[in-house]
Design a protein around this nucleic acid. Structure first.
Lengths: 110, 110
DNA sequence: TAAATATGACGTAAATATACGTCTTATTTT
DNA sequence: AAAATAAGACGTATATTTACGTCATATTTA
């Protein structure tokens, strides 16, 4: 059982994974911080969140796996930056999904 | 541990919960079906999905808890319909989040 | 080179999500 | 009223996510 997600359209799988990547406040906080400060994360970001360093590192990895951020090694530090082109792509995927539903003007049976 | 989600801004929590409600292809498939057919689900929807009746019922409950659909009892049947006003609200929340990030024009440290 | 620092890898415990079978309750239909 | 049908409630097994500590590796600084 589980992993029955593979039995659905790849289209739906892709979108579900996008939403999943955004389904934790810590990950949203990281993205928001990067946008607000217009900088990249180079140091210990756990000061900014109520989570341990390793947990934050794990969330950064998830964002990286989803391509929402990119990480480049700068000597002893790692620099995490927003991947704006991918984020734009994700906005389209998300908007498209909502728009298609809203455009249907489906009527409730009541 | 866990449920540290409550330590974040309610704003971020709300958005994370929205994304979580959409983070499974079965739930996206249900919403898509309701929009495409422009009808409501009144019978056994598990025929349409590679999942058992009880599992589908569980996903319907999650969509209902997130207010993305509404369920009304019609005698022996239950009628599940899209909650378009809530979906519009969610589209705004989602778009707003993406737009704020994109508007930042954050630059990568590279 | 040795010590300090940064950070991912790895392992693990606990919480939550997924999936499904069975049971219960309520409404029809016969 | 009895049988059939519909669908949520409940329990449970398994998978995944979350959270964190420790360890390993790499780079810098002293």
């Amino acid at each position: 059982m589980y992993a029955k997600t593979e039995l659905f359209d790849t289209d739906l799988q892709t979108r579900a994974e996008l939403f999943k990547a955004l389904a934790h406040p810590a990950r949203l906080a990281i993205l928001k911080y990067l946008a607000e400060t217009r900088t990249c994360i180079t140091g210990d970001f756990s000061d900014e969140l109520p989570l341990s360093r390793t947990t934050v590192s794990q969330h950064l990895k998830e964002l990286k796996d989803a391509s929402l951020i990119v990480g480049t090694i700068e000597g002893v530090k790692t620099c995490y930056c927003l991947n704006l082109s991918k984020i734009k792509e994700f906005r389209s995927l998300s908007s498209e999904f909502f728009d298609n539903i809203i455009a249907s003007e489906a009527i409730c049976c009541k």
